[in-house]
Simulated scan of single mutants.
Amino acid sequence: MAVLLLVLLVLAISYASSLKAFLQQRDALATAQAQIAESSAAIKELEGQKARFDDPEYVEALARSRFGWVKLGEIGFTVIDADGNPVGKGPELPAATQEAAAPEWYSTLWTSVEVAGGVPQKTSPATTDEVVKPQKQDEDQ
């Protein structure tokens, strides 16, 4: 009877650990599937935006609204308030990227040449506490 109880206890423990691993994997799989669904939706949205840029009329309308561009012969105007400030949203340019702020390659190269050719700074002389004295070897050897 005790042996049977012991065997059942061992089986229950082994199945419990397997069940725990199964549940963890199922949760991880559900999370991965949710991420895939979100990524697929984002990809479809971006493909739709890309397809809109194939339409020259859309590109023209976007340039007119964002940058205030006008065609040759048209007259552009901006409505201003009593203080002289533009009413509504005016033309805007995209923000500068980090690539534009990065130094040119030749400037980085010359800086490295200057650093490599520089004279090292003098260090202060070691004090007597910092000096390591060689150990005396036995004269028997």
Rank of each mutant, 00 (worst) to 15 (best):
A2H: 14
A2Y: 05
L4C: 03
V7G: 15
V7N: 15
L8F: 10
L9H: 13
L9D: 15
V10Q: 14
I13P: 07
I13T: 08
A16Y: 06
A16N: 12
S17D: 14
L19Q: 13
A21T: 10
F22H: 14
Q25R: 06
R26M: 03
A28R: 04
A28T: 05
L29I: 14
A30E: 03
A30N: 05
A30K: 10
A30T: 02
T31W: 08
A32F: 11
Q33V: 12
Q33S: 07
Q33C: 01
Q35W: 06
Q35V: 08
Q35I: 08
E38M: 03
A41C: 02
A42S: 01
I43C: 02
I43Q: 10
I43F: 04
I43Y: 09
K44P: 00
K44D: 09
K44I: 06
K44M: 06
Q49T: 08
Q49D: 12
K50E: 11
A51D: 00
A51N: 01
R52C: 11
F53E: 05
F53Y: 14
D54M: 11
D54V: 12
P56H: 08
Y58H: 10
V59C: 03
E60K: 14
E60C: 11
E60D: 14
A61V: 00
L62P: 08
L62R: 12
A63K: 08
A63M: 12
F67I: 14
F67P: 02
G68Y: 01
W69R: 11
K71F: 06
E74K: 00
I75N: 13
V79D: 10
V79P: 01
D81N: 07
A82K: 09
A82E: 09
D83R: 12
D83Y: 13
D83L: 12
G84S: 04
N85Q: 08
N85W: 11
P86Q: 07
P86M: 06
V87Y: 01
G88P: 00
K89C: 00
G90T: 15
G90F: 08
G90V: 15
P91R: 02
P91N: 04
P94C: 01
P94D: 00
A95P: 13
A95D: 06
A101M: 06
A101S: 07
A101L: 10
A102P: 02
P103M: 02
E104R: 04
E104W: 00
W105C: 01
W105L: 07
W105I: 11
W105M: 06
W105F: 04
Y106D: 01
Y106A: 05
Y106S: 00
S107Y: 03
S107M: 05
S107H: 03
T108R: 07
T108G: 04
L109N: 02
W110T: 01
S112G: 02
S112T: 01
E114A: 10
E114D: 07
A116H: 02
A116G: 12
G117A: 07
Q121E: 13
Q121S: 13
K122M: 01
T123Q: 11
T123P: 00
S124I: 08
S124C: 07
S124F: 02
S124G: 10
P125T: 04
P125M: 03
P125Y: 02
T127G: 09
T127V: 09
T128S: 05
D129V: 00
D129W: 08
D129S: 09
D129F: 06
E130A: 04
K133Y: 04
K133N: 12
K133Q: 09
K133M: 09
K136F: 13
E139G: 10
E139V: 14
Q141Y: 15
Q141W: 11
